[in-house]
Every structure is written in structure tokens, then in C-alpha cells.
């Protein structure tokens, strides 16, 4: 088993097959309150993220809202330009890949199925759109393709002339999945694909994503804040906090034996089906820190139950062993003083 998460510079996969998607020290800085007389305050939404995703795998990125997950997904979709660092698609730097070529390999499924479909277009038009952009096939072939993909994602054919407002949330998300898959990409970046849906519909969409993955040999980058979803879906997990990956590794390891205090807190926040137990004690203390003014040292120390003295001053090192990564002083055995 090679590493799902590596420190930069990452060696190419030993087998010779290039990684499906890779980021090296990816950083995105926004300028808040920019005016002509000032350059604004920097906000690092994504800070030195190095990830790699092999073909056929599912890598989940977990973290609470505001931690930079969505920015990371937009960077990886090429919708925003990174401030520093690089993205590689199949071993090639993203900056060298034509936008149209890239779009045939990587497609998104977004969070909100109410905002991801144009209200003025019919379902058929929405799903056909990528085929038209890439000029794939004749009109009749495109029709056939649209109907085939609709059947595959479980949409009744008669919905082809309906408008998004006539569909339920689950049906809309199926449309979004069909649009992403119609040009047969290799990689799907799912940005919280189920968080806007009812619990019962969530399971249907997750099952659909799982079976499509097997049928079409897809690779997923799966972004979520819901650990039970992540556990069900993913091979590898990366935990993100304030723009940094604080712990990563195979899903079974990270979720069964979490090492970073933040991962442990996240795991204890999973709600159980028994309402008698009440809300779980998370031990995260005060609210989310201000990303405009991140804490010194370890970014997590103000909320950490196990914080040491040096956590407030010294930034923890990134420790990589095999396929696992952690950024925490508690697990830094080299620096014992």
C-alpha cells in the first residue's frame, strides 16, 4: 500500500502509474477588505496542503465549516488559482493542462442541488450541456447518451423535459451527478454532496455514488463534515483544521484509532441514534477561531484539551510515516524537550 497522503515532494507512484490527482503545498490566500489604498488583510483558507489521490480510490477530506474544504475543492477544480503550490493531474501540472481537457477528467458534484441547476433549463438540457460544450456526438447520439445516463443514475426518462423546480432534492442531486458523469470523467470531486439532503435520501445518493464508482471505475475526492458518511465512503481520510491537514491516513486507522486531539473531538461529535443520550460532550471549548487572525503555534491549541506549553508558541512539525500523517506535538517523539 502506497501513501495516500505524502509530504512534498511526493515521489511518483512506484508502479509507474501516475497519481490521478496530486497537490503539493497548495496555498490559497484571500485578501479581505481590499481597497485601492490598502492591500487588505490576508486570509489563508488553504495553507500548504499536500494530498495525493490514486486512481480508483476515495479520499475524504473532513473538517468543520470554515476550515477551507470548499476552497480546496475549488482549487482542485481549477475554478480558483492557488496563491502558491501546485496541482498535478495524472502527473501533469494543472497549469499545463487545457481547461477543456481538464474538464473531461475532473468533474464536480456540489453541495446544494438547489443552486447547482439552472432554474431556466430543463433536466435534459442541463445534462446535455457538457456534451455540447465538448462537441461530442451528433444531436441524436447526445439524446441517447442523456437518456442512458439518466437511467444509470436512477432518473425516470419522463423527467427529461421537467424543470429543476419540479424535482425533489434527491432527484436534483441525481441530475447533478448525471451532468458530471455524462462526459465520462475519471475523477469526481464531491463537495458535501449529501449535506443538503434528508437523511433517507442521503443514503440513496451515497449508495448511488458507491455503485457508480464500481461500474465506471471512478476516483472520488469526497469532502464532508459528516464522519459517518466518510466512514462509509472512503479509503483514506484527511482531517483539515483552519486550512491545514492535521491528520491523515487510511480510513480505518484514522477513524478507529484517531491520534490528533481534533480528530478525536470530531469523532466524539457523531450523533447516535439514541436520543436519550443527549448531545455528546465534544470538549472543543470556545468557538471556531478567527481565520483572519489564526492562533500562534499550533492552530488548534486554544481548543485542545491536551495542549502543552509549547503548543501556544511552536508550530508542530508535519510527521509522515508510511501512509499516515500527523501534525501534533503530542505525537512528535523526536522533540522530547
Amino acid at each position: 500500500m502506497t501513501a495516500a497522503v505524502l509530504s512534498a515532494p511526493a515521489p511518483q507512484a512506484a508502479a509507474g502509474e501516475p497519481l490521478a490527482l496530486e497537490t503539493r503545498d497548495l496555498t490559497k490566500e484571500f485578501r479581505i477588505g481590499r481597497k485601492w489604498y490598502s492591500s487588505g488583510q490576508p486570509l489563508r483558507a488553504v495553507d500548504g496542503v499536500s494530498l495525493s489521490l490514486r486512481k480508483g480510490e476515495v479520499l475524504a477530506i473532513v473538517g468543520e465549516s470554515g476550515c477551507g474544504k470548499t476552497t480546496l475543492s475549488r482549487l482542485m477544480l481549477g475554478l480558483q488559482q492557488p496563491s502558491a503550490g501546485e496541482i498535478f493531474v495524472g502527473g501533469e501540472p494543472l497549469t499545463n493542462v487545457d481547461r477543456k481537457v481538464f474538464s473531461r477528467r475532473v468533474q464536480p458534484v456540489f453541495q446544494d442541488p438547489y443552486s447547482s441547476l439552472n432554474p431556466r433549463k430543463t433536466i435534459g438540457e442541463i445534462i446535455r450541456d457538457p456534451l455540447q460544450i465538448h462537441r461530442i456526438g451528433t444531436s441524436a447520439e447526445q439524446n441517447a447518451e442523456v437518456e442512458a445516463i439518466m437511467e444509470r443514475v436512477g432518473l425516470a426518462r419522463r423527467l427529461i423535459h421537467s424543470y429543476p423546480s419540479q424535482l425533489s432534492g434527491g432527484q436534483r442531486q441525481r441530475v447533478a451527478i448525471a451532468r458530471a458523469l455524462v462526459i465520462k470523467p475519471e475523477i469526481i470531486i464531491c463537495d458535501e454532496p449529501t449535506s443538503a439532503l434528508d437523511v433517507s435520501v442521503q443514503a440513496q445518493i451515497l449508495n448511488l455514488l458507491q455503485s457508480l464508482r464500481e461500474q465506471m471505475n471512478l476516483t472520488y475526492l469526497f469532502i464532508s463534515h459528516d464522519l459517518s458518511v466518510v466512514e462509509y465512503m472512503s479509503d483514506y481520510v484527511a482531517v483539515m483544521y483552519l486550512g491545514r491537514i492535521v491528520e491523515a491516513g487510511p480510513a480505518a486507522e484514522v477513524l478507529r484509532a484517531p491520534r490528533h486531539p481534533y480528530t478525536r473531538a470530531l469523532l466524539s461529535s457523531i450523533l447516535t441514534a439514541d436520543p436519550g443520550l443527549g448531545l455528546p460532550e465534544v470538549n472543543l471549548g470556545r468557538g471556531f477561531p478567527d481565520p483572519l487572525n489564526p492562533p500562534n503555534g499550533c492552530r488548534f491549541h486554544p481548543r485542545c484539551v491536551d495542549a502543552l506549553d509549547k503548543c501556544a508558541t511552536v508550530m508542530p512539525r508535519r510527521i509522515v510515516s508510511g501512509s499516515e500523517l500527523i501534525e501534533c506535538h503530542l505525537h512528535d517523539t523526536a522533540a522530547t524537550d
Binding site: R74, F110, S115, S116
Partner: peptide
């Protein structure tokens, strides 16, 4: 997001 989707579709 439908604009984002369209951009991502090339």
C-alpha cells in the same frame, strides 16, 4: 453553483 458547474465543464 450552476455557474461553477458550467465552468468546470469547460
Amino acid at each position: 453553483e450552476f455557474i461553477m458547474s458550467s465552468l468546470a465543464a469547460g
